[in-house]
């Protein structure tokens, strides 16, 4: 580093020791899990046969490919999860500094939340959060039945 930094420390002098305890904790947790898994693997009883390795034990024979196509609504929910997850991060960055930002910051984050609330209402109204067949198809089905 250049000499212009003066007396200010160029890196915060805390940190590594602070996180060392967390690291040791994680290490102990991983060690315990590894020991338990190894013990059950080493001491456990193992039987290997063709019947034992079948997915269902009680005589249900698997017929088709196990990799089925997932329904699209699951994927939609995953996308909405990402979007609202990002919203949570923005709101959290406001929440930690709310006292410094004052009412102006509150108004700004309210606008942000309102825009996303409009999005949520749109999802609700279009039925993107509904499971099963859409309302239009259900109406068609109801007309077919009688």
């Amino acid at each position: 580093m250049s000499s212009t930094t003066g007396s200010l420390p160029t890196t915060a002098p805390i940190l590594f020791e602070d996180y060392l305890a967390l690291g040791i904790y994680v290490g102990i947790a991983l060690f315990l899990v590894a020991i338990l898994l190894l013990l059950s693997w080493g001491l456990g009883h193992r039987t290997r046969s063709r019947i034992k390795n079948e997915p269902y034990e009680s005589g249900v024979y698997p017929t088709d490919n196990a990799r089925l196509k997932g329904p699209v609504p699951f994927y939609l929910v995953a996308i909405f999860f990402i979007l609202f997850d990002i919203e949570v991060i923005f709101v959290a960055s406001w929440a930690v500094a709310y006292d410094r930002l004052g009412w102006a910051g509150f108004g700004q984050v309210s606008f942000f939340t309102l825009v996303l609330l409009v999005g949520l209402l749109h999802l609700w109204k279009t039925g993107a959060l509904d499971w099963g067949p859409s309302a239009a198809r259900q109406n068609r089905k109801n007309q077919d039945i009688p």
């Binding site: 994927y75 979007l83 993107a128």
Partner: peptide
Amino acid sequence: LLPFEIASILLLVAIVGAVVLAKKEV
């Protein structure tokens, strides 16, 4: 501040776009 508020509009567009793409006929 302005990029932040634009980000909210962007997220809104993403929500609507996901619905339009995925919910054609379910």
